[in-house]
């Protein structure tokens, strides 16, 4: 069977190694988002970074996969595929621990109001009142499952089942930096101003991408976040406070 046939085989067992363009391989740990698959992707990437296979130039994770970019003119994809398979076979990645040095962040958030105009709509989709919806999100401790789409931007989960609501079919023209949005039992905190299909339910003054600081990308996969409810007056004050917007963090032990 040729490599291309393997890529195209939709029923191959996980973990599964596939091709991304000419110079990328992706190791997928599942078809849908699950906690073990997310852990596996993070742990496998860490192992790849430690092993630094020849020709690999960059690695990254998505929700349930690890991506590797390599120099396609210097090494054979088939050789790298073999190295990755050996690494995959070396342990049970689904049982891996979460990354070390994880932190718990508390980020002050305004729910609803003109600053986050889709709380009512999202609450209705989740079958909750606005107050109950805001309370439920504000008391959820969610984990950064991956950083992606835009610089430093986290996908966080997993929310209670009621929040398994679809994305909007039509896009919102733009949400501002710091917008907290919801869909499919996940939250996304936006690092840029952009159109989106996710519903805008909260607003923070937290800057995820700080290109001129020592820590350009603030959150890391594995970090946990509580989006604490705050009032308008406090929020306006925190907004002037700098890029943290009143957020506090502590190391998870």
């Amino acid at each position: 069977m040729s490599e291309t046939d393997q890529d195209m085989r939709a029923d191959a067992p996980f973990p599964r190694i596939g091709r991304v363009g000419l110079d990328g391989l992706v190791v997928s740990f599942g078809e849908t988002l699950s906690e073990p698959a997310n852990r596996a992707a993070l742990a496998f990437r860490a192992a790849v970074e430690r092993a630094t296979p020849k020709g690999v130039e960059e690695s990254a994770t998505s929700l349930v996969s690890t991506f590797l970019r390599f120099d396609a003119l210097r090494i054979e994809a088939e050789d790298l595929r073999g190295d990755l398979q050996t690494l995959l076979d070396s342990c049970d990645w689904y049982g891996a621990d979460l990354p070390e040095g994880r932190r718990l962040w508390r980020i002050p958030t305004i729910y609803g109001t003109d600053l986050a105009p889709q709380l009512a709509e999202a609450a209705e989709a989740a079958g909750l009142t606005e107050e109950a919806a805001a309370r439920q999100i504000a008391s959820s401790r969610v984990r950064v499952q991956t950083i992606g789409f835009a610089p430093g931007q986290p996908y966080l989960g997993e929310l209670p089942e009621a929040w398994d609501i679809p994305r909007q079919t039509a896009l919102t023209d733009r949400v501002p930096i710091g917008a907290l949005t919801v869909a499919i039992r996940q939250l996304v905190l936006f690092s840029v101003t952009t159109p989106t299909g996710w519903r805008h339910i909260g607003q923070t003054a937290f800057r995820l991408f700080r290109p001129d600081s020592d820590t350009p990308f603030v959150l890391r996969p594995g970090d946990e976040v509580i989006f604490e409810a705050t009032d308008r007056e406090t929020y306006e004050r925190l907004r002037e406070d700098g890029p943290d917007g009143g957020a506090r963090s502590e190391v998870i032990r």
Partner: peptide, 9 residues
């Protein structure tokens, strides 16, 4: 800027 894919850039 290659190398920042893991950070969403």
């Amino acid at each position: 800027r290659p190398g920042y894919l893991a950070y969403g850039l």
